[in-house]
Design a protein around this nucleic acid. Structure first.
Length: 371
DNA sequence: TAAGCGTGGCT
DNA sequence: TAGCCAAGCTT
């Protein structure tokens, strides 16, 4: 009886299996090149900065707006920083926008408008750290670099059953990630790991049955995949409280002042605010915090906002003036508030004072739902 | 090194 | 609802 032909096909490497999965299931994203094409470095860089600690859904509309307004790195470099901050308003982590603008100027003026094509060179740009340098060099230049973000850390911690908690495990995970990068298609591999983390190897209830790495995933074999990666405990967020002062002139323009260039919400606009302390100021104390004497009326209710490292509650005082006092700041007409460099927390405060939940937010919300 | 730095969606 | 989580970097 003749022997059946043996199939001697070599088992595909983990990288090859992941790339095959990626070819079938890759996400279509605004900044992603068509299959087989290489993306524009400016597009990749812009998207990577926006995506730092930020979801794809939140980024999409901002990415499109930036690219439409500033189609090249030279155009972005030539823009006033305040315009960039205003366009970034609502996306958070505003140091990214300041660094984005500085990096654009470095590329435009010192590098002839060309982005560095190595991770080492990219790493020198402000706002580009180890992850972003690896991601841009791999995706835009096909450099053999890993891009180990939170998705990749989760995938790798499970695949190799790394039980050290984050952030202790970061260097180890980065090394493990680099060890898997294939000779070819490093950019696709980087994006494939992230898509795997986003679509299959999710924080909760990972879809292991559909995973191209399920057979050799050590975390799954040991039954511990879903609870990896372990993480250090978070510090409790303190609560801070204060008062805000929203003044309108006879035409409804609102007084806004510019925050310090660095630190929390650096370079962004706000209405005048009192100090943030453990308790709200009394009505009397609040009046002494106001930017000028006026008929300040306390609005009902409070504005709450959560930051990464503390929570904020604000009581809002408002006044309408027949005549503008002489005071430093900009009187911004109401129809310009939407496009102003107002971070979300300040937008909430102004909206609360003006008694609206509408125009200050509606445009952004509709953009997000369209994304 | 560890803390500072936004926001919105999901459970 | 309150906490978790997201394509991290800077100082």
């Amino acid at each position: 009886m003749p022997k059946p032909p043996r199939i001697t096909q070599k088992p595909a490497s983990p990288a090859a299996r992941l790339l095959s999965w990626y070819d079938l299931h890759r996400r279509e994203l605004p900044w992603r090149a068509r299959a087989g094409a290489t993306a524009d470095p400016y597009h990749v860089w812009l998207s990577e900065i926006m995506l730092q600690q930020t979801t794809v859904v939140a980024v999409a509309s901002y990415y499109r707006a930036f690219l439409a307004r500033w189609p090249t790195v030279d155009a972005l470099a030539a823009a006033p920083l305040d315009d960039v901050l205003a366009a970034w308003a609502g996306l958070g982590y505003y140091a990214r926008a300041r660094n984005l603008h500085r990096a654009a100027q470095v590329v435009a003026t010192e590098l002839g408008g060309k982005f560095p094509d190595t991770a080492e060179g990219l790493r020198k740009l402000p706002g580009v750290g180890p992850y972003t340098a690896g991601a841009i060099s791999a995706i835009a230049f096909d450099a053999r670099e890993a891009a180990v973000d939170a998705n990749a850390e989760r995938v790798l911690a499970r695949y190799f059953a790394v039980e050290e908690p984050l952030p202790i495990a970061k260097p180890k995970l980065r090394t493990l990630g680099q060890s898997l990068v294939p000779e070819k298609r490093a950019g696709d591999f980087a994006q494939a790991v992230m898509d795997l983390g986003s679509l299959i190897c999710t924080p909760r209830r990972p879809a292991c049955a559909n995973c191209p790495w399920t057979e050799d995933c050590v975390g799954r074999a040991r039954g511990i995949a879903e609870r990896l990666p372990l993480k250090a405990e978070r510090a409790v967020r303190p609560l801070r409280r204060g008062a805000a002062f929203v003044a309108s002139d006879a035409k409804g323009a609102v007084l806004l002042i510019k925050r310090a260039e660095n630190g929390l919400l650096g370079g962004m606009l706000q209405p005048p605010l009192g100090p943030w302390t453990e308790n709200f100021p009394s009505a009397k104390a609040a009046i002494s915090q106001a930017p000028f004497a006026a008929d300040w009326r306390k609005r009902a209710g409070i504005v709450r906002h959560g930051f990464t490292h503390f929570e904020l509650e604000i009581e809002v005082y408002s006044t309408t003036l027949s005549k503008r006092p002489k005071i430093e700041g900009r009187w911004v007409p109401q129809d310009e508030l939407r496009a102003a460099a107002l971070p979300t927390v300040m937008r909430k405060i102004v909206a609360h004072a003006l008694d609206e939940g509408g125009p200050l937010f509606s445009d952004r919300l509709s953009k997000i739902s369209r994304a």
